[in-house]
Structure formats: C-alpha cells, structure tokens
C-alpha cells in the first residue's frame, strides 16, 4: 500500500484552503490542480486496492504516455481520426445548416421534414456501423459517413430551433422593410439563428469526437480508437489504453476551445449575454 496518496491529498486540501487570500489568478490555478492531485491519489489507491493488472497505475500510465508520444503511430492515428471528424463534420454543417434554415422557417417544410428528422435522430450513429462498412468498406469513407450522421442531426435540429426562436419583432421588422426571399435568409434568418447554430456546432463536434473513437474500435484499421483496440489485443497493454484515452480527452478539449472561438464574433455575441 502506497502512503504518498494520503500525503498528497492532505497537502492538496491544505494548500487549497490556505489559497483563499491569494490573488484570483493563483486561486484559479491552485484549486483545479489540487483537485487533479486528489484525483491521481485516489487513482493510485484504487490500483493498490484492485491490483495493477486491473487498473494501470498513474506512474505506468505516465511511462506509457511517453512511449506512445515517442512512437510515430500516435501522430498518424490522431491525424486519421481528425481527418474523418473534420470532413464528416464539415459535410454535415454544409448540408444541415441550409436544411435547418428552410425547415425552421417554412411551416410546410417543417410539417414535411420534422417527423423524418425526429425519427432518424434517436438512432445512435454506432448502429449505422454495419451499413457504413457495407457501403464504404473499412477506411476513411465509413468514418466520414458515421461522423456526418452523428453531426448532421444536432446541427439540423439546433438550426431549426434557432430559426423558430427568432423573435416576432425581428420578423415583423424584416417584413416592414420589405426583406424577403433569399435576402431574408441572409439578413435575418441566418444571423438570427446563428448563436444557436454555433451552440449546435459545438455539441455536434463533441459528439463527433465521441463517435469516431467508437467507430474506429468497431470497424476501422487506423485512428485513436483503433490504437486503443490494438493496445488491448496485442498484449493487454492497459497502460497504453489509459494513455491513449488521455490523448483523446486532450484533443477533445482543444477541438472545443477552437470551435468556441466562433462565439466571439460581434455578430453572435448578443446571443450569449448572461441575463
């Protein structure tokens, strides 16, 4: 039984408590670091309790992290996953936003399309894997298709909701100044729905990053999901599995930070003001 986790936990709590009078920046650094230190300590205790074969220790995982980052496979597999996510996501955005704008705005299109959209939406993209492989084979095509499916519905539904939330005064303003047709879409409907569209893009990208790993574990021969499978089947290297999971998490955070930058444009900031 290691003793250091207890020492670290006590120290972390102590430092967190004494940080109360420090500057805001220091507190914002110390508080999450303290939680992370406690988390790693609990992790170590879990290993001690369950055995290192069941849970790889933090130290082994750190070594595994060094191992995978030194190998050239990590970069290649990360890029494979990112490639599929990028294309699937962009194709979904390019089709789901226009469809959502039209279906959200026109009541008759809404009647026509909404039941189909709502009917397909609850089907997990994972359930499509057999067809994805049947139609596109093992490789990027199937991955892109699955990401397309998993991004399409959140974006489409978010765009529809954004359009339907455009306030009556703005619709009436547009009508009053004779804005109609394509111009109405460009000047009122699209910008009016944009904050919600961006939120749906964020959600969709998050889901896409979840789905690609599962898809690669089920039926692909590259990518971070495949890397996890590989580590597991080629000798039960659960330390490599854990290290890869961390890389997946880090890339996920970076993707979210990147897409959140869309929220900073002047044209959409109005949609995110806190009341």
């Amino acid at each position: 039984m290691s003793t250091w986790p207890f020492v670290v936990m006590v120290a972390a709590v102590f430092i967190q408590r004494t940080s109360k009078g420090w500057s805001e920046v220091a507190q914002k650094v110390v508080m999450p670091l303290g939680v992370a230190a406690i988390g790693v300590s609990l992790w170590q205790l879990g290993c001690d309790w369950a055995g290192a074969e069941i849970i790889p220790t933090p130290w082994r995982t750190a070594l595994a992290m060094r191992e995978i980052t030194a190998s050239d496979r990590l970069l290649g597999d990360s890029l494979a996953s990112l490639y599929r996510v990028t294309w699937g996501f962009l194709l979904a955005a390019a089709t789901a936003i226009p469809l959502g704008l039209v279906v959200g705005w026109s009541t008759r299109s809404f009647w026509a399309m909404n039941p189909i959209i709502q009917g397909l939406r609850p089907i997990s993209p994972i359930a499509w894997i057999p067809f994805a492989i049947l139609w596109f084979g093992i490789g990027d095509g199937a991955g892109i298709f699955l990401i397309f499916l998993s991004s399409f519905f959140p974006i489409c539904v978010g765009t529809m909701a954004g359009v339907r939330n455009i306030s009556l005064v703005h619709q009436r303003s547009a009508a009053n100044f004779g804005v109609s047709g394509f111009e109405l879409m460009r000047r009122v409907v699209l910008p009016g729905a944009m904050p919600q569209i961006i939120t749906s893009l964020r959600i969709a990208l998050g889901v896409a990053w979840l789905v690609i790993v599962a898809a690669e574990m089920c039926g692909m021969d590259s990518g971070l999901g495949y890397l996890i499978n590989d580590a597991r089947f080629m000798g039960n290297r659960y330390d490599l599995v854990a290290a890869t999971m961390m890389v997946i998490g880090l890339i996920g955070i970076v993707l979210d930070l990147l897409i959140r930058r869309l929220e900073n444009f002047d044209e959409v900031k109005w949609g995110y003001v806190k009341q």
Binding site: R172, S173, M194, D266, E267, V268
Partner: peptide, 21 residues
C-alpha cells in the same frame, strides 16, 4: 393588406437587429 416600407413601425421591445451594427 400587409406591412409596407412607406409606413414604418417602431416597436416597444427593440426591433433593431442585435446581429448588425
């Protein structure tokens, strides 16, 4: 029969577009 740009409405809740300068 409908709104017309020759007659303009000023709304109680701001009718200007928040997404435009």
């Amino acid at each position: 029969t409908g709104p017309d740009p020759r007659r303009v409405f000023v709304f109680q809740e701001y009718g200007i577009f928040p997404w435009a300068s």
